[in-house]
Amino acid sequence: TRVETATETAWISLVTALHLVLGLSAVLGLLLLRWQFPAHYRRLRHALW
């Protein structure tokens, strides 16, 4: 049971790290898009909202 718990903890930390990385890359990508294509971003936002 001790090994299982350790594996579970490792998986949880791995998944958390993955989610953090994905979230950060998504935010960075959005910022980059907004910085590179302001007109396109505004049009996209206008279409979405």
Score class of each variant (00 low, 15 high):
39 A>G: 12
16 T>D: 02
16 T>A: 14
42 R>G: 11
46 H>P: 03
19 H>Q: 07
19 H>W: 15
4 E>N: 06
18 L>I: 11
47 A>G: 04
49 W>C: 04
21 V>G: 13
47 A>S: 05
6 A>E: 04
41 Y>E: 04
48 L>R: 02
18 L>V: 13
37 F>A: 13
48 L>M: 13
25 S>E: 01
42 R>E: 08
33 L>Y: 08
27 V>C: 09
23 G>D: 00
49 W>N: 09
24 L>C: 07
10 A>K: 15
6 A>G: 10
7 T>Q: 13
44 L>I: 08
33 L>D: 00
19 H>N: 15
18 L>S: 10
15 V>C: 06
25 S>W: 05
1 T>F: 09
7 T>Y: 04
49 W>A: 04
3 V>W: 02
19 H>R: 06
48 L>C: 05
22 L>Y: 03
44 L>F: 09
20 L>S: 07
8 E>R: 08
25 S>L: 14
45 R>T: 11
16 T>N: 06
36 Q>G: 10
11 W>A: 14
4 E>C: 03
9 T>V: 12
36 Q>M: 11
19 H>Y: 15
30 L>W: 14
12 I>A: 14
30 L>A: 12
43 R>D: 04
14 L>E: 08
20 L>C: 10
42 R>H: 10
1 T>M: 07
33 L>C: 14
6 A>I: 03
24 L>T: 04
41 Y>R: 03
5 T>S: 02
1 T>V: 12
24 L>D: 00
41 Y>I: 12
47 A>F: 12
20 L>H: 00
3 V>Q: 01
2 R>Q: 13
10 A>M: 13
30 L>G: 07
47 A>L: 05
38 P>I: 11
45 R>L: 11
12 I>G: 09
47 A>Y: 08
25 S>F: 12
19 H>V: 15
8 E>N: 08
47 A>E: 05
8 E>T: 05
23 G>N: 01
49 W>G: 03
1 T>A: 10
25 S>P: 03
24 L>Y: 01
45 R>M: 12
46 H>R: 05
12 I>D: 06
35 W>V: 05
45 R>Y: 05
6 A>Y: 05
40 H>M: 15
6 A>D: 08
19 H>C: 15
7 T>P: 14
20 L>D: 01
31 L>I: 12
45 R>E: 03
30 L>E: 00
10 A>H: 09
29 G>F: 14
46 H>L: 07
42 R>W: 09
37 F>R: 09
10 A>C: 14
39 A>F: 12
33 L>Q: 00
24 L>K: 00
6 A>C: 07
49 W>V: 05
14 L>P: 11
5 T>L: 06
43 R>P: 02
40 H>P: 10
11 W>T: 08
22 L>G: 11
33 L>P: 00
35 W>L: 05
37 F>E: 00
20 L>Q: 01
42 R>T: 14
36 Q>C: 12
32 L>P: 00
49 W>P: 02
43 R>T: 08
23 G>M: 15
32 L>N: 00
17 A>C: 15
9 T>M: 15
2 R>C: 05
11 W>R: 13
44 L>N: 01
36 Q>L: 07
25 S>Y: 02
37 F>Y: 14
31 L>R: 01
24 L>H: 00
1 T>Y: 07
28 L>D: 00
11 W>Q: 07
17 A>D: 03
13 S>M: 05
1 T>C: 08
6 A>F: 04
18 L>H: 03
28 L>N: 02
26 A>E: 02
32 L>S: 04
32 L>W: 14
46 H>I: 05
49 W>E: 03
39 A>S: 14
20 L>I: 11
29 G>I: 12
45 R>V: 11
46 H>C: 09
27 V>H: 01
46 H>K: 06
34 R>A: 11
38 P>W: 08
22 L>S: 05
44 L>A: 04
45 R>N: 04
35 W>Q: 06
49 W>M: 03
47 A>P: 03
17 A>S: 06
7 T>F: 08
45 R>I: 12
23 G>Y: 02
34 R>N: 02
30 L>R: 03
26 A>W: 11
29 G>D: 00
36 Q>D: 02
19 H>S: 15
31 L>W: 13
33 L>H: 02
44 L>S: 02
16 T>Q: 06
47 A>I: 05
14 L>S: 07
40 H>C: 15
7 T>E: 12
3 V>D: 01
36 Q>W: 08
7 T>S: 09
35 W>G: 05
15 V>G: 10
20 L>E: 01
5 T>Y: 02
43 R>H: 05
21 V>M: 10
46 H>D: 06
33 L>I: 10
16 T>L: 15
43 R>Q: 08
19 H>M: 15
15 V>Y: 07
8 E>W: 06
12 I>V: 09
38 P>T: 08
14 L>Q: 06
46 H>Y: 10
25 S>N: 04
48 L>G: 02
25 S>H: 04
6 A>H: 02
22 L>A: 11
32 L>V: 10
30 L>I: 14
2 R>D: 11
33 L>N: 00
11 W>C: 09
43 R>A: 12
31 L>E: 00
35 W>A: 03
7 T>D: 11
35 W>C: 10
9 T>H: 07
26 A>F: 15
22 L>E: 00
4 E>Y: 06
11 W>G: 15
27 V>P: 12
21 V>Q: 00
23 G>E: 01
11 W>M: 06
28 L>S: 11
13 S>Q: 08
4 E>A: 09
8 E>H: 06
39 A>K: 09
13 S>L: 10
48 L>S: 03
20 L>K: 00
46 H>Q: 14
48 L>Q: 01
42 R>N: 13
41 Y>K: 02
8 E>Q: 05
39 A>I: 13
41 Y>M: 13
15 V>D: 06
23 G>K: 00
28 L>T: 09
36 Q>H: 06
8 E>S: 11
11 W>E: 08
21 V>N: 01
5 T>W: 03
35 W>Y: 11
39 A>Q: 15
23 G>A: 14
41 Y>Q: 03
47 A>C: 07
10 A>T: 08
26 A>I: 14
24 L>R: 01
29 G>N: 00
33 L>T: 03
6 A>L: 04
2 R>I: 10
16 T>V: 15
30 L>C: 12
13 S>A: 14
45 R>H: 05
35 W>N: 06
38 P>R: 11
31 L>D: 00
4 E>L: 05
39 A>T: 14
2 R>F: 11
44 L>W: 07
12 I>K: 14
39 A>P: 06
1 T>W: 07
31 L>M: 13
39 A>H: 12
49 W>T: 05
37 F>L: 12
48 L>V: 05
42 R>K: 13
14 L>G: 09
2 R>K: 10
38 P>V: 11
18 L>A: 14
15 V>W: 08
26 A>C: 10
32 L>E: 00
25 S>M: 07
3 V>R: 00
6 A>R: 08
8 E>K: 03
32 L>F: 10
13 S>C: 11
37 F>W: 13
22 L>V: 14
16 T>S: 10
15 V>Q: 13
37 F>G: 06
8 E>M: 05
38 P>A: 14
